[in-house]
Simulated assay, not measured.
Amino acid sequence: MLSNKAAPPGRSREEGEKPFWISYADLMTALMILFLVIMVTSLVLVTQKIREATQDEEQRVSEISDLCRELANNADLKNKVIQIDCKDNRINFGEAGRFGTGQFKLSSDGENALLDVVPLILQAANSEVGNKWFKQVLIEGFTDTDGSYLYNLNLSLRRSEWVMCTLIGDKNALKLRLDPDQKIQIKKLFLAGGVAFNNSKSTKDASRRVELRLQFYGLKEREDLNPELDAKFSDSTEEKCFI
């Protein structure tokens, strides 16, 4: 028996010729939306990284400031001669830290102030924050403008080296009750450097001075330890103390 069910009507000719691809305008719109999504995501990630870096730097600055203020408070209790500027991270000793014309040795008051501040600096460097950020202490010996540049450069270097020798001398080491490890730490932590008559003061007397500049690590900076170089530097510095 034949079925009377009608066959489905065939597709018209016009319907078969209609395009089934996405139009060019729709394709460009989709690509633009995808591009905007990628850009917004990238901006969010970059902004987040910048915010985290800013927060880390603010925390670093805050921790270093707190460390310096604590050091300044302890120094003020120990010896009123010691003056610590936490804005520039510098330590000076006022008139006690001044040299005579052509001289590279401080008075007894200046030497005592140096010896008083050393244990405080070691205490700060060995603290939790100090272990994290404390890099080194640069000894800067300044001169006045009298004499040639090379003369003053040599004189400023002799002044900073004398300070270094004062810190690591056996007599003062006994006075400070430094153990061998602390003496080695001083050699590594303190660095003598001449600066000639740069950053001169209003008077020649005030210009002939010594200052200790506290230096701290940056966010990305980490100490590249080299025991051989440290040993050579320490040995050469100590040899100069006996010349």
Rank of each mutant, 00 (worst) to 15 (best):
L34A: 14
V61I: 12
K132L: 10
S3P: 08
E140L: 10
S108H: 03
L153F: 13
E58N: 12
A72W: 03
R51F: 09
T166P: 04
L71S: 06
V37T: 11
T237S: 07
Q123L: 08
A25N: 04
V44L: 08
Y217S: 12
F242G: 10
T47E: 10
G94H: 05
G16F: 07
K171S: 14
K232N: 11
P9D: 14
D88H: 13
D26P: 10
D116Y: 01
A196N: 12
Q136N: 05
I38D: 12
F99S: 06
L229E: 14
V40Y: 08
E63S: 14
R208W: 03
V81M: 08
K49I: 09
I91D: 07
F216L: 06
N154R: 05
S160L: 06
W162Q: 11
G10R: 11
G97P: 06
L34N: 13
A72M: 08
W162E: 15
I84M: 04
E221C: 04
E228L: 08
V210I: 10
L157N: 15
K232S: 11
D76G: 14
S236V: 04
L43M: 13
Q55G: 11
L153I: 00
G193Q: 08
G194A: 03
K171M: 01
V40L: 13
G110A: 01
I33N: 13
G110N: 00
S148D: 07
G16N: 10
S3T: 15
L77K: 12
D224E: 15
T29R: 14
V210A: 04
R177A: 13
S108I: 06
L150P: 13
T203M: 02
K183P: 06
A25Q: 14
R90P: 11
V163Q: 05
Y24M: 13
N79A: 05
N152K: 03
L2E: 15
A206L: 07
R60G: 03
D181P: 02
L155P: 08
E239D: 15
F104D: 04
E52M: 02
G218S: 13
S42G: 11
G94L: 00
M1R: 06
K132P: 10
T41I: 10
L219D: 12
L45C: 13
W21K: 15
V195A: 06
A192H: 03
D109T: 08
V210E: 02
S202G: 10
I33M: 12
S42W: 11
P9T: 11
L71W: 05
R222E: 15
N226I: 03
W162H: 12
S107I: 04
P180Y: 02
L2P: 15
R69L: 09
E239W: 00
G147S: 05
D235F: 09
K5R: 06
A25S: 13
F190V: 06
L31W: 08
A124T: 09
E211Y: 05
